[in-house]
Computed example of a mutant assay.
Amino acid sequence: MASTSPPITTTTIAKLKQGSLLWCYGFKEACCLHRVVILCYRSRDLLIRTGQCSLFNGFIFLGSVSILKLFLFPMLQWLLPDQCPHIVYEEVCRYGVILSLYSSLRKLLIQLIYLLWFYPLYVFSVILSSIWYNDVAKHGFVAMGKDKPPAAVMTGEKEASITQTGSDKPAGLGGIMIGIGEQVYSALLLSFFFLEVIATGFIPYAGKALNFLLLSWMYAYYCFEYKWNLSGVTLDRRLDFFESNWAFFAGFGSPCVLAIFFFPPLESYAVMATLFPLFVLTATGSDADNLVTSPRKQWLGAGLGRVPIFCGADTVSMKVLSFLPLRQQLHNQGEKAL
């Protein structure tokens, strides 16, 4: 007897439509690069910081990689060939001594180029970009013409008084300690999630697709994290909002990943470091809180449900934090403040 597959219900179709629509909205929001032009026009400081990111990562870093691939590698291959180009040296080349020496010398020179130029340049880029990205987000906030972004959707109507202040953290030492704890936990969470992203790349068949999806979520979270940090939204609320609107953020992160997915690691970092400030600004200017819950999508159903994207990374992070004395101190300070 042939097995019958379960019928596709109206609810399933509605959820598929809702997920597809939210994904398209997220993709569209990420591609609204005209916001970058408008914000840079409003703020000279923002224009300078964005220009510095593009100049260093795009012109110096990516330009160096291009010179290496297009000119230095072919030149070294011509000067130190793998095959003997002249008939005169056929007898010597027959033993492969010179060719082996050429190959070893060429590899040594390439490693020296990476060691003396690209690796220090990469470290320098990571440090500078981390500072510049934060400045880009801050200047973008100022250029938006408002001190704090709306957070009503993330904090809930019952905490409207907290939302009006722009932060849902307690004041004083308790708030500081909670903030430190959130930063430590957030760093661990994203680090372990990044390891998950790398691990999925080794899964046969479905690994590439899963890796693309996780990368999209990761870059979307990075882009919106600056906005949420500046608005004072606590980590648990932003994670809940992110996982509850996973389709939107998967769409938002897709253009980021498409720009780097098919490049080798060094080139992909250079491209991402150049484009990332632009996506940070599109996230800063995005009204995602209202977009994902707008009334025109109510016909699609009550919602897609929450997907525990960071569940694995959260479990490992909490396990690591359990060995740190800082966790109990933060917990005690938080209870006192509350």
Rank of each mutant, 00 (worst) to 15 (best):
M1E: 09
S5H: 15
P7W: 04
T10M: 11
T11L: 14
T12A: 15
I13S: 01
A14N: 14
Q18L: 15
G19H: 08
L21N: 04
W23P: 01
F27K: 02
I38S: 15
L39I: 12
D45I: 01
L46W: 01
R49H: 13
G58N: 04
L62S: 06
V65E: 13
L70N: 06
P74Q: 08
M75S: 12
Q77R: 10
L80E: 11
P85K: 03
H86Y: 15
I87L: 11
Y89N: 12
E90F: 11
C93S: 13
R94G: 12
I98L: 04
I98D: 02
S100W: 02
S103L: 10
L105P: 01
Q111V: 13
Y114I: 13
L115D: 11
W132N: 05
Y133K: 10
N134Y: 13
F141R: 01
K148S: 04
V153Y: 05
T155R: 06
G156H: 08
E157C: 13
E157Q: 13
A160W: 04
A160N: 11
I162R: 11
G166Q: 05
S167H: 08
I178P: 03
I180A: 11
V184E: 12
V184P: 09
F193R: 00
L195R: 02
V197E: 03
A199Q: 02
A199L: 07
G201C: 07
P204G: 09
Y205G: 06
Y205E: 09
K208G: 05
K208I: 07
W217C: 03
Y222R: 06
C223L: 07
F224T: 04
W228D: 02
N229L: 00
N229D: 04
S231L: 07
D236I: 11
D236S: 12
F242Y: 10
F242N: 06
W246V: 04
F252S: 00
C256D: 02
F262M: 09
P264W: 02
Y269T: 09
Y269Q: 10
T274P: 04
L275M: 14
F279S: 05
V280A: 01
L281V: 07
T282V: 04
A288I: 09
T293Q: 05
R296Q: 13
G303E: 01
R306F: 06
R306M: 09
I309F: 02
C311G: 07
T315H: 10
S322M: 03
Q328G: 05
N332I: 09
E335F: 07
K336R: 14
